[in-house]
């Protein structure tokens, strides 16, 4: 059985997400766990990784940042995508109450986690950060589950003015909870250092440019780990170790901006 090859999924419904992207709900299921990702192939366009937002039906949320994501978010209902996966290690589910901290399109994998947590009747607190009001995605997905995400914007156009991590730190006892984060790397670095400083249990989902997505080519390395295979979810301690390894060898990486991916 060649289960490493692509499966075809027709688009069932497209939901516009503010001005920045779209959520794509496909006709079909793909068993996955929160934090895992799939490789999406559009013949003639390319193939890129996206987090699973829901597995039944398969749902992806895509921010438009370049040629591939423009093509993907322009798909019409009934048009098809080719998907292989899921790949990667999921977020560990632990006993206790959780806070999910998302920046930009990082909301995708945490939306799936929120759904699984709600199914276990442990409603998480959700904090969503974006540059500006029009950039929020998937707020409806959380609201549908009865969750009211706390919002933070860089420009103060909606909710708290500041980053999602600053919003988290403004809570009274945030570090007693389990913390899950996904978003721009600058945000994740701030979250990881705070969490480790306060001795909190914290997991992050990292991103690196992926080629094979199956742990063969070595392209997605971060320190000595392969993000597609060993990640994309790492504990905050492990993420800090990997970033230190990376920075030791490539000083320019430490202050690399993720402005390209998170406009």
């Amino acid at each position: 059985m060649a289960d490493g090859l692509h499966r075809v999924f027709p688009l069932m419904r497209r939901v516009e997400e503010g001005k920045v992207g779209a959520t794509l709900i496909f006709d079909g299921e793909l068993k996955a766990q929160p934090g895992q990702f799939v490789m999406v192939w559009l013949p003639g366009v390319g193939e890129r990784p996206f987090s699973v937002v829901d597995d039944a039906p398969l749902t992806l949320t895509v921010a438009r940042v370049g040629p591939f994501t423009r093509a993907l978010t322009a798909l019409q209902e009934g048009e098809r995508v080719w998907i292989r996966g899921p790949f990667g290690r999921p977020f560990p589910l632990r006993q206790g109450s959780a806070i999910l901290v998302a920046g930009g399109s990082g909301v995708a994998s945490l939306a799936f986690l929120a759904k699984r947590l709600c199914e276990k009747r442990t409603e998480p607190l959700v904090i969503l950060g974006a540059r500006t009001e029009a950039n929020f995605m998937l707020t409806w997905f959380f609201e549908r589950m009865g969750l009211c995400p706390l919002l933070a914007t860089d420009d103060g156009s909606k909710g708290w003015q500041g980053t999602a991590v600053e919003r988290l730190e403004a809570l009274s006892q945030p570090w007693r909870e389990l913390i899950y984060g996904c978003g721009p790397e600058r945000m994740l670095r701030a979250l990881a250092s705070s969490a480790v400083r306060h001795g909190a249990l914290c997991w992050l989902s990292l991103e690196r440019v992926m080629k094979c997505g199956i742990g063969v080519c070595g392209h997605c390395h971060c320190g000595d780990q392969l993000v597609c295979r060993d990640g994309p979810v790492f504990s905050a301690e492990e993420a800090l170790r990997l970033w230190r390894l990376e920075a030791r060898d490539n000083p320019q990486i430490a202050d690399r901006e993720d402005s390209e991916r998170y406009p």
């Binding site: 059985m1 060649a2 890129r48 080629k211 997505g213 063969v216």
Partner: peptide
Amino acid sequence: QGHPNPTVLDWGHGLINAIGLS
């Protein structure tokens, strides 16, 4: 740079790759 994706596949009895020597 190497070739664009898709570059490596598990086709069932092994791998096929065209990474393009990136």
